[in-house]
Design a protein around this nucleic acid. Structure first.
Lengths: 141, 141
DNA sequence: CTAAAGCCTGGAGTATACTCCAGGGTCAAT
DNA sequence: ATTGACCCTGGAGTATACTCCAGGCTTTAG
């Protein structure tokens, strides 16, 4: 596959792919004419990168997983440990998102009149019932 | 509270707090001497920002929630809709993280010999049993 | 053969989110 | 009254992750 093909297959730009190569996130063979030549598996790897990235992992963090994903020959215990760390990280983020959800709900339910954003403005207590979410009481989120 | 206090209370730097103010994420009263004066509630708001941010939300996205959190007086249906969008967003991220988890496991289990990162290198099939994670079979993640 | 489309490199520019001065006031204690 | 620990502003600098040329080969279709 050449760069244009893989770009449209992944939704990434050609420039982004070249940038990833510079960073060491993605290697490509070269054809006789100097054009990059990607194996079809690169699509999956790039999708992985894209997903991880939109979820808040930096390219540096993703890069750190690279040996984990690239060298199955590395010792099993090391690999197990690396995978464990990564999954822990993911689980912490999931937890964090649940917390964020709760925080959002709590703020709406309890903290509204004491918001630091509009100092000295509001003291109008809102009715909690006004903030139920499509039938779900936000205090239960 | 003045800037140094709130900085150490939240773990953010003074410069970051001033930067947030420039961006419009955080307002502060001014004392007679011109020093910023924060209400104690600002600590919670900043913690919310920090959490959301480390989870991959940009300041722009967080800023977009600002009226949601700052103006309880806004009409209930609008607020409901905004909250619904935000929670959907969070749920999608959680889903994405679960997918990432699975992807990570799948790659290790199935895709290892066909990694695009080291082209033309490995064909050594690894034993799936080598990649169980602390007793959990990674194929079940 | 030529024109369009696609690839190459190197380097400059952009957006986000800080981070770090310089130069200068304020305040509490000695 | 001066020292040190605060605070202020404006502006420059940094890291990340692209994004966009300029100038120049290669390939494909007419």
């Amino acid at each position: 596959m050449q760069i244009g093909e893989i770009a449209s297959a992944t939704g990434l730009s050609r420039d982004t792919l070249r940038f990833y190569e510079k960073r060491g996130l993605l290697r490509a063979r070269r054809s006789a004419n100097g054009y990059r030549d990607y194996p079809p598996e690169a699509v999956n790897w790039l999708r992985y990168i894209k997903l991880a990235q939109t979820l808040g992992f930096t390219l540096g963090e993703i890069e750190a997983d690279l040996p984990l994903l690239a060298e199955p020959a590395s010792s099993a215990p090391q690999l197990r440990a690396a995978l464990a760390r990564k999954l822990e990280d993911i689980d912490q983020r999931i937890e964090g998102l649940h917390a964020l959800r709760g925080e959002l709900a709590r703020r709406l339910a309890e903290d509204m009149q004491a918001c630091p954003l509009q100092p000295g403005q509001a003291d109008s207590h809102a009715n909690l019932n006004d903030y139920s979410l499509q039938g779900v009481n936000i205090t239960n989120l």
